[in-house]
């Protein structure tokens, strides 16, 4: 008789730990062939609340890291993904991607992490500036992270969609609570393991598996989430915008049908979407 393999219990990465839902609920996920794959935690609004707490706790420390340090950590995350490339490709393929599509998803995701890693100590120089005011003041505009940002990831591309939304948010010092694809959650759970080994402080990225419909209203109304970056349907957009109105939350939607693999899917302006601009004045005099 052949050896019975040990199956992994999928647990999403929240607050630097791998959690089960506080509710104890799970939902089964099948692979592309229709076979039972695993039970995935069905995170609830309370899990979301806890994740926001974790993200808020991690935020100030992460934002205070030097830009150089944040860049190196994102680069390290790229290293982790590269090192487990084969495993990630197999996983994506298991859920229906062709091998070549899966490889492309992983490789572009890795490159995207490296792209944003490189921006960490440069976007400020492109987006901020000194302003020549018409008075004896030194005036400069710098960027600051907004705080805790909610991310709602697309189903596809299963990995690149998530990475493309998360990386530009965290590079500036924001922290993220992300809802991962409901249809294909396992690649994101595997990605969580890479986050855990990448030197990224716990709580900076928090991944929640579960039902979008259940979590979306809380993403919309949680006032401690200062921004939302999401792919969403028209109805979901409306819900998110209505919720955002209650605390003047910033909302950024990305169409799910963009070419995620193209160079145009990445830019410092994606970083800008979750930045605040702060302008400081000081008199010039002795």
């Amino acid at each position: 008789m052949s050896r019975l393999p040990i199956t992994k219990t999928p647990k999403p990465y929240v607050g630097g730990a791998f959690i089960r839902s506080e509710s104890g609920r799970v939902f089964p996920v099948k692979d592309a062939a229709g076979n039972f794959f695993a039970n995935i935690p069905q995170c609830t609004r309370k899990d979301l609340r806890n994740a926001v707490e974790a993200a808020a706790k991690a935020g100030p420390g992460w934002a205070k890291r030097t830009a150089y340090n944040r860049g190196q950590i994102l680069y390290r995350l790229g290293e982790m993904l590269e090192a487990r490339r084969a495993e990630m490709i197999d996983t994506l393929a298991l859920f229906g991607a062709t091998k070549s599509a899966a490889a492309k998803d992983v490789d572009v995701s890795t490159d995207r992490l490296i792209y944003y890693a490189g921006w960490s100590d440069k976007y400020e120089q492109v987006l901020g500036n000194v302003n020549p005011v018409a008075a004896p003041y030194f005036n400069f505009t710098v960027t600051e992270p907004m705080g805790v940002v909610g991310v709602l990831a697309p189903d596809s591309p299963a990995l690149l969609g998530l990475v493309s939304l998360v990386a530009p948010v965290i590079v500036s010092g924001n922290t993220v609570v992300a809802h991962v694809s409901e249809k294909t959650p396992y690649p994101a759970i595997l990605f969580g393991e890479m986050l855990a080994t990448s030197d990224l402080p716990g709580g900076v990225v928090n991944l929640l598996s579960g039902f979008r419909k259940e979590l979306l209203p809380t993403f919309a109304t949680h006032t401690h989430l200062r921004a939302i970056s999401a792919t969403a349907s028209a109805d979901e957009r409306k819900t998110l915008r209505l919720g955002a109105a209650e605390s003047i939350k910033r909302v950024k939607f990305t169409d799910s049908d963009i070419d995620w693999f193209a160079a145009t899917a990445q830019s410092p302006y994606a970083i800008r979407d979750t930045l605040e601009f702060k302008t400081t004045w000081h008199p010039i005099g002795a």
Binding site: P136, Y137, P283, I284, G285, A286
Partner: peptide
Amino acid sequence: GTVDCVGVE
């Protein structure tokens, strides 16, 4: 105490 010159002006 000190004086801020731009403020005075």
